[in-house]
Amino acid sequence: MPRPKLEVADIFRAHGAAYRRQHDGHLNLTQLKVMSAIETCRTAALGGHVAACTKCGYEHIAYNSCRNRHCPKCQGSTAKGWMQARMEDLLPAEYFHVVFTLPAQIADIAYQNKAAVYGLLFKASTETLLSIAADPKHLGARIGMTSVLHTWGSAMTHHPHVHVVVPGGGLSADGTRWIRCRPGFFLPVKVLSRLFRRLFLEGLIRLHRVGKLRFFGDLVGLADPDNFAAHLAPLRKTDWVVYAKPPFGGPEAVLVYLSRYTHRVAISNHRLVSADGDTVAFRWKDYRIKRGDRMKVMRLPTDEFIRRFLIHVLPPGFHRIRHAGFLANGIRRDRIETIRRLLNAEPAPGQTSDEGATDDFDDPNTLQPCPKCGGTMIVIETFPRGQTPKSRAPPREEAA
């Protein structure tokens, strides 16, 4: 994919300093670090190296990346490495995609209590799938899953939801059989929705009871237990959105999907259309339109664009990709081997991950061939943060 003409980094470099001055005292340290990382990503501020072709002499400068998980420019290479490691987990089974979404009244609470409520979203959705799948009335098996948290809608508004990718089957209780789900059908959505609603609300009440929730601004009244109970009461009677998409076309399609979703940030650079001193325009998908072209262009004041980007910055150390069931990190390898034996299936050629492979584009050992003649590129100079190379090669803010 060609490099976009406009990037989030360009907007932050041009308007970030003014935004920080205007909102001094209202941005947390993590948000400030994200802005700084994106602004300096692949610039001389982070150092880099100069590579030259041994055949034609072509040279170029490669600046280091910030590696921040909220940086649109860095997440592509990170996703590739993560996906390479997941290849050997694929099974010869149907894969399903289930989405758990929080109601707007809960999303407001989540925004002020990100770590606690996002964590509860993971826990409640996972327990829902594990419990219903284990029920003999449904699948009667122990399943595995990979869950990915997204906190945004297409317009970058706050819309917390979890995407869950699940193999269509699981291990019997005694671990001696693989139990497949019915072709094209995983678990009943209404049953999932009701249990998810109950588990989440029970968990949220527990968090409130032990003082794990904080409320500010318009929500400050929810600190009172009676007000909080009244706020939640209508949600016990509404349908919560749990959406089960049709099964993937096969394990390969799962990899394609995950490569798009696992390391996505609130907006990619390729969705940006234009930016001037006052506004930023970007493409977004209007899901209210059932038929026809959903893609539109939204124009926001620059300050509002930056604000929307920053509301999706996650708390430090919070894991937005999680594995559960037989795909849990501690037991995944043994369980996958057991399931393969039960299915009499071996990894497909090329499905085993290469532990020596790397997608670290800041590593001089991963240089690509010369773009001019295809010759071998070698590093002729490295330079530390804040310094410029001695080479006269024209600067190129890209990874080697």
Rank of each mutant, 00 (worst) to 15 (best):
230 A>T: 12
234 P>H: 02
267 I>P: 00
213 L>W: 08
262 T>P: 06
236 R>K: 10
284 W>H: 11
234 P>W: 00
281 A>Y: 05
254 V>R: 09
266 A>W: 02
258 L>A: 05
230 A>S: 11
242 V>F: 00
225 P>I: 08
217 G>V: 04
268 S>A: 13
278 D>F: 07
271 R>A: 02
263 H>T: 10
280 V>M: 02
250 G>Y: 02
269 N>F: 11
280 V>E: 00
261 Y>V: 15
253 A>L: 00
256 V>W: 12
243 Y>H: 15
245 K>Q: 14
274 S>Y: 12
258 L>T: 04
219 L>R: 12
258 L>V: 07
230 A>V: 11
278 D>E: 10
231 H>N: 06
289 I>H: 13
259 S>Y: 04
274 S>I: 06
254 V>I: 08
285 K>N: 11
292 G>F: 06
239 D>N: 14
242 V>S: 01
265 V>K: 03
288 R>V: 10
256 V>G: 09
292 G>C: 10
249 G>T: 07
206 R>K: 12
229 A>M: 10
216 F>W: 14
232 L>P: 01
249 G>I: 01
296 K>T: 01
229 A>G: 09
252 E>G: 07
249 G>M: 05
236 R>G: 09
203 G>H: 00
288 R>C: 12
228 F>D: 04
281 A>F: 01
233 A>H: 04
204 L>P: 09
218 D>Y: 09
267 I>E: 00
232 L>K: 02
235 L>H: 01
241 V>D: 06
254 V>S: 09
210 V>L: 08
273 V>D: 04
232 L>R: 00
226 D>E: 13
239 D>I: 13
277 G>R: 15
262 T>Y: 02
223 A>W: 08
247 P>A: 03
257 Y>T: 11
224 D>W: 10
254 V>H: 06
275 A>I: 04
208 H>W: 07
232 L>C: 04
291 R>Q: 12
204 L>H: 09
276 D>F: 07
272 L>Y: 03
292 G>E: 10
234 P>A: 09
205 I>S: 14
257 Y>S: 15
239 D>L: 12
301 P>V: 01
233 A>L: 05
291 R>I: 06
219 L>E: 09
260 R>S: 06
